[in-house]
């Protein structure tokens, strides 16, 4: 697993270079944003279920997907859906802390699209709900932290799309 720091170190090590000024500046701004990230992670973990509820209301609840024939129909599927949303959310929070959106690749996004396709889960609706999650989080955390989380959510969307 890599974060903003280890990513830079590993690539410098492969080239046998010391961390150059650009890398150090990048890390400096990452460390400076650390307080913001840690605070955001703290308030997120206290509010996950609320955020998921709002997200479902925003993107999925009043659409065909929750009715008979939809992929969230029957409680079992509904439950699986909100569980997955919590996964996305948790991994986006990890990525926020690490400062490297690609952190989600290894444990969340690898083969996720294929899994969803084989289970018949509509990827379009999933992406829509991740986008809705982004909006909900943005309202809750404010612009700065919201923007950082937005980057992580967008990365998840592009992994699905």
């Amino acid at each position: 697993m890599q974060d903003a720091i280890t990513t830079l170190i590993n690539s410098s090590d492969m080239q046998g270079r010391y961390l150059d000024d650009t890398s150090l500046e990048n890390l400096q701004s990452y460390f400076r944003s650390g307080d913001l990230r840690a605070r955001a992670a703290m308030s997120i973990s206290a509010n996950t279920s609320k955020i998921v509820t709002k997200t479902v209301a925003k993107a999925l609840l009043y659409t065909d997907i929750t009715g008979p024939g939809g992929n969230m129909y029957t409680c079992r599927r509904y439950a699986a859906c909100i569980r997955d949303m919590e996964y996305f959310f948790r991994h986006a929070t990890y990525a926020l802390l690490s400062g490297d959106p690609s952190l989600s690749d290894e444990r969340l996004l690898t083969a996720l699209k294929e899994t969803y396709n084989s289970l018949g889960v509509p990827v379009g609706a999933t992406v829509r709900s991740v986008q809705a999650m982004k909006e909900v989080v943005n309202e809750m955390l404010g612009a700065d932290a919201g923007r950082e989380m937005g980057v992580c959510f967008d990365h998840i969307c592009s992994g699905l799309g």
């Binding site: 697993m1 890599q2 974060d3 720091i5 280890t6 990890y94 802390l97 690490s98 952190l103």
Partner: peptide, 8 residues
């Protein structure tokens, strides 16, 4: 691994 990735 940094302390961050370790905790994650």
């Amino acid at each position: 691994m940094s302390i961050i990735t370790q905790a994650i």
